[in-house]
Design a protein around this nucleic acid. Structure first.
Lengths: 210, 210
DNA sequence: TGCACTCAGTGCACGCTTGCACTTAGTGTA
DNA sequence: TACACTAAGTGCAAGCGTGCACTGAGTGCA
């Protein structure tokens, strides 16, 4: 972020883009990914439908941006906690424990519920949805791995990539189970289910398969 | 107002112009007419200073629009009450009584307080301020007279003009006295003073000087 | 199977905002 | 009295939003 405020033109453009993303998240939460049109999105965002396409190349592009933003918020939260945590001894075990501890503390249920709506009705035949998931997974793991590498310069890059993929891939599997059991609700009961599933993931990956 | 909604472009332009007027009223209320600059106005209205001059030819033009709007709201109120009141016998006395009754019921203290700030520090040497008052007085009396004439087609136009000028001119005199006595405050005590002064005006003009 | 309809996405022109450099008037001070 | 400063107001060009007509893909129905 530059030290000075962006000018009004830049700020206005960014605000309008954000309004479109917020509208997409709101509509997805209410209707699921398939339940809204460009017209509804534009109306909710208080822009013209042409403006939606000035900012995004397609509706899928809007969903990707919405998805990425949800993940970015999680990674921002992780980065803030890391910055406030003493650096470990640089070992992979230490890195893993830090990430595992963060996953336990960060609110994942809210974003999970949101992502469930964004991926409403996703199945193997849904090419656009599958492409969306792959893109988001790629961006998320790349960013997280880069942040961790920056924090532990001595660690091997491949090791970090594998670690991150293990955990993030595990989260995807967890999401499927959690969603099946709770209907992707965001309440106290579903949070208990999530905490239990998460503990099993962290313990399993931490201990490996010896 | 057209039956259909104005398009987004028209609505946005009108909203921005209104934001400038609202900002002017707010700043005048806080600092008086002389206490703010184009930069402050633009910032408060959340537009660029160029945009202020896209909508208005000068700062005085903004003040005129703000002033006119305050008066228009009062006349709108008067028109609504008139529309809900049975038409009198068309005599001037009847017209006068209707106007007098409306003046007693309509909230004048709020707008009076606002206009006092808009005309902050007005004196005989303040050419811009004097021009502003003349313009607003002209527009206000013209509009009010036209509305009354529409409502009483049989009445003589000159008679209506004189009647309206008597009352509106009297209101200006009343404002000076009220302001001197109450400091243009908008509270229960100042409202009592206003009610008393207004009653004297209406009674005096109604009875004439026989 | 052809037609009609809907909706995502697009090109183009225009309206309006904004950034920025500029002029001018007014004011204060040495 | 001259100079420096401030702020109102202006011209021009660029950025962005919007209106609108359009194309094409997908879908449903006779």
């Amino acid at each position: 972020m530059p030290a000075t405020q962006p000018d009004r033109r830049t700020a206005s453009k960014a605000a309008r883009r954000q309004a479109i993303i917020d509208a997409a998240l709101g509509l997805a939460r209410e209707h699921g990914r398939h339940g809204f049109s460009v017209d509804l999105l534009a109306q909710r965002a208080d822009v013209s439908r042409r403006t939606v396409f000035n900012h995004f190349s397609s509706l899928d592009d809007v969903l990707l941006a919405a998805h990425t933003q949800v993940m970015d918020v999680l990674i921002d939260d992780f980065d803030r906690r890391s910055a406030a945590t003493p650096v470990g001894d640089g070992s992979l075990a230490s890195v893993f424990d830090e990430l595992g501890a963060a996953l336990r503390v960060i609110d994942l249920v809210g974003p999970m519920a949101t992502l469930t709506h964004l991926l409403d009705g996703l199945d193997d035949d849904d090419e656009a949805g599958q492409r969306l998931v792959r893109e988001v997974m790629h961006r998320t793991t790349a960013r997280l791995a880069a942040d961790i590498a920056r924090r532990s310069p001595g660690a091997d890059e491949l090791d970090i990539d594998l670690l991150v993929h293990s955990l993030v891939g595990g989260l995807v599997v967890l999401h499927a189970h959690w969603s099946a059991r709770t209907g992707a609700a965001d309440d106290a009961a579903s949070r208990l289910v999530w905490a239990d599933l998460l503990d099993r993931l962290i313990t399993t990956v931490r201990n490996g398969y010896r």
